[in-house]
Amino acid sequence: MTPPPASKTDHPSGDNRFKLLDRTIARFQSRGDALIEVLHSAQSIFGYLENDLMVYIARALRLPLSRVYGVATFYHFFNLKPKGRHAFVLCMGTACYVKGAEAIQNAVAKRCGVSFGETTADGAVSLVSARCIGSCGLAPVAVLDDDVAGKLSVDGAVERVGQWIAEPEQVSS
């Protein structure tokens, strides 16, 4: 969906998203210790952390490239690959596990043909497992795009992802 940034290490011409990112970098006075904040900001602007984008950040914060790469891959919140159009985030916290999240996980993965942590080949759905989203009272819980679904059943979950897969692919602008 999001086109890769037009430029590499140079300041982009016309890609306004870099202006947004520069604003975050400036807010932290280009300090290296703000790396995680800047990566957060970059991911929310660009959708994921492409290599060139991380190089851009490393240069801006004057950090070694491998440091930036190391931090980006340490934290599971950061994606180095584009996400699917829809996200099925299944909570695998203890309460959800005890209440049968594993069965949902297996069924949904089977329906999508990919494992959790992956995106379907057509880019329709990303399957993500989360470490307790803190809605244990509603276990098992999944977040479908931004919608929290509590007390989810196996069939219900499979049906929801089935709808996403069946959706006609949007024409990218």
């Binding site: 995680i36 904040e37 934290y75 599971h76 950061f78």
Partner: peptide, 22 residues
């Protein structure tokens, strides 16, 4: 804002994370 690492609940890891590190 953390970024999805349970170990950052450990105080020395948490501090490193605040300083933008692994």
């Amino acid at each position: 804002i953390g970024a999805g690492a349970f170990v950052c609940g450990e105080e020395t890891a948490l501090m490193r994370s605040i300083q933008g590190r692994r």
